[in-house]
């Protein structure tokens, strides 16, 4: 197992290098640049713009820039943001708590709602609730998030005044958990509902397979309560693939929050990425990409290992 793990790790490193080269080249060769935001300021001249470019090191040949960047990454220096000149690592790490807060809540909502609907669907296949749940989950998956989010804001914040229309906390007020939750609920629901369809579908498929197995019949025959049969036996056995799914969704949530974060003024990683993209803040973009790639690779690896632990049938080759 250690050998397998090491091999996967080695592949991942090569992968990461490949990814950074492609991303770096793509970004720098494309038109536009970070100096553009200053172009229309009063008194701005071409030579001023050139000086600003040079201060970012953008006047050097591309391979030199890449090597510098890569060497920096290896020594823990991720470079500095063009936008606010802070170290990229700080810029990114500052955003992680907000993103985690939102995505973990959203994932929890998705799992609770999705799994419940999935189990319901599996137990009462082709019933009206099954249809309604399937349709509801599919609609949530199919609605453009930004539209859904803005509708939620329009109805619940502007018209009804039940929720704030964005932000993570009431500004200028002292910290309060209730206030934080109040701000969190709408974006987390909007983000979470998108995932419900995936969760309910997987759960449903997985459960259908399990409920027809012999040991479930045996459990029923033993006279175990239906609730214990379902949750204690059937669901536990159906849960294996769901662990993989959770692992696969964590990195998605980091980026999937991108639109939700924009709509709900949530100061997370996704929003950072969009802003940095608009500004052509290459060091931050590269930093976010590397962090995300690491997360994907890491969570894939973790999910594989977890499944192996959960499911004794799997052996490593």
């Amino acid at each position: 197992m250690t050998a397998y793990f090491l091999r996967r790790l080695r592949q991942s490193v090569v992968l990461l290098i490949l990814v950074t080269i492609v991303a770096f080249g793509l970004m720098h060769l494309a038109p536009g640049g970070p100096e553009a935001v200053y172009a229309l300021s009063p008194g701005m001249r071409a030579e001023d713009l050139q000086r600003i470019r040079a201060s970012f090191g953008l006047d050097q040949p591309l391979p030199v820039q890449y090597v510098k960047w890569a060497a920096g990454m290896l020594t823990g220096d991720w470079g500095r943001s063009y936008r606010d000149s802070r170290p990229v690592r700080d810029v990114i790490f500052d955003r992680i708590p907000a993103t985690l807060e939102l995505t973990v809540t959203a994932l929890a909502i998705a799992i609770v709602v999705g799994v419940s609907l999935g189990v319901l669907g599996a137990l009462r296949q082709r019933s009206l609730p099954d249809y309604l749940a399937t349709i509801g989950a599919m609609v949530a998956l199919s609605v453009p998030t930004f539209w859904f989010g803005l509708m939620v804001i329009f109805v619940f914040a502007e018209r009804l005044g039940w929720i704030p229309s964005g932000g993570r906390e009431t500004l200028g007020a002292d910290f309060s958990l209730a206030d934080r939750l109040h701000h969190l609920i709408a974006p987390a629901l909007v983000l979470g509902l998108v995932l419900v369809a995936t969760w309910s579908r997987y759960t449903r498929a997985s459960m259908i397979e399990v409920v027809n197995q012999d040991y479930i019949r045996t459990a029923r025959a033993k006279g175990l309560g239906e609730r214990r049969v379902i949750w204690g036996h059937a669901f536990r056995n159906a849960a294996g693939p769901l662990v993989t799914l959770a692992g696969l969704q964590i990195p998605f949530l980091f980026s999937g929050a991108l639109v939700t974060e924009s709509v709900f003024t949530w100061p997370g990683m996704g929003r950072l990425f969009v802003d940095s993209l608009g500004y052509r803040d290459y060091p931050v973009l590269m930093g976010v990409l590397v962090v995300t790639a690491l997360l994907v690779i890491g969570s894939n690896l973790a999910a594989d290992l977890l499944v192996a632990v959960v499911d004794p049938r799997i052996r490593f080759r």
């Binding site: 038109p31 640049g33 970070p34 553009a36 935001v37 172009a39 071409a46 713009l49 608009g278 052509r280």
Partner: peptide, 13 residues
């Protein structure tokens, strides 16, 4: 039309 970083970059300057 183009994103700000493109149009007000070399395209304009």
């Amino acid at each position: 039309n183009m994103p700000a970083a493109v149009i007000w970059g070399d395209y304009y300057n």
